[in-house]
């Protein structure tokens, strides 16, 4: 797991907190460039999660979330988003996928779409559900970026975390690392606000 990231990770200069908890609930403010970046990341993850339409698929089965032809995802990032439910039983895991994977994809896409909609406004004001959707969406974005960056252990994660200066973005990998750190910083800021709101409601 990753501990709270320290320091700046904004796309440009401004180190103010992205999200905070206050009288209006959880509010966030993002620069236009940050919103643009997030929107494209979110859309990428949505496109990875959208189930492919297959010929001859039973429409009723699809409607209730069944997918008898489902297979373990070949893309590592998609597999991380939709993992096997049993460690050492591929058969049982696949059976479980047939019953649940489609609706899990829909849950994730729903959260990602909800977050993308909020990006249309300058100030983001989140309900408890909205905040949950945002945290799930940011988490999925980070999981996908982490696979692309080949973050396999905490040492890899620390290495990526060292990349903080946008003027150093020279290649795809360093750019992805900066984007990953930005998403991490944003999620941490949101989760801290969500934890505060949990404290207050207890």
């Amino acid at each position: 797991m990753q501990a709270s990231p320290a320091g700046r990770a904004r796309v440009r200069g401004n180190v103010a907190k992205a999200f905070k908890y206050g009288l209006k609930g959880i509010t966030g403010f993002l620069e236009p460039a940050e919103r643009e970046l997030l929107r494209s990341l979110i859309n990428d993850v949505i496109s990875m999660l959208e189930p492919e339409e297959r010929e001859g698929q039973d429409p009723l089965a699809a409607l209730i979330g069944l997918d008898m032809e489902v297979a373990v995802p070949t893309d590592r990032a998609v597999k991380r988003l939709l993992p096997n439910v049993m460690k050492n039983d591929d058969g049982a895991s696949l059976e479980f996928r047939q019953l649940t994977e489609r609706s899990l994809r829909e849950t994730k896409i729903g959260a990602l779409r909800a977050a993308a909609l909020d990006l249309d406004k300058d100030e983001i004001v989140l309900t408890a559900d909205g905040a949950r959707h945002w945290s799930m969406a940011l988490n999925d974005v980070r999981l996908v970026l982490a696979e692309r960056l080949d973050i396999q252990d905490e040492e890899d994660a620390e290495h990526v975390h060292l990349m903080q200066d946008w003027s150093q973005a020279e290649d795809v990998e360093s750019y992805l690392a900066l984007v990953y750190n930005f998403a991490t910083w944003l999620q941490e800021s949101l989760v801290q606000a969500m934890l505060q709101s949990l404290d207050t409601s207890r």
Binding site: A146, Q152, V191, L195
Partner: peptide, 26 residues
Amino acid sequence: LVIWNDPVNLMSYVSYVFQSYFGYPE
């Protein structure tokens, strides 16, 4: 139900999920 470690998920987020979903105290 087993939760496995990974290098990506934030400690704060994992704790938040355990608190909000399972209703566990902090």
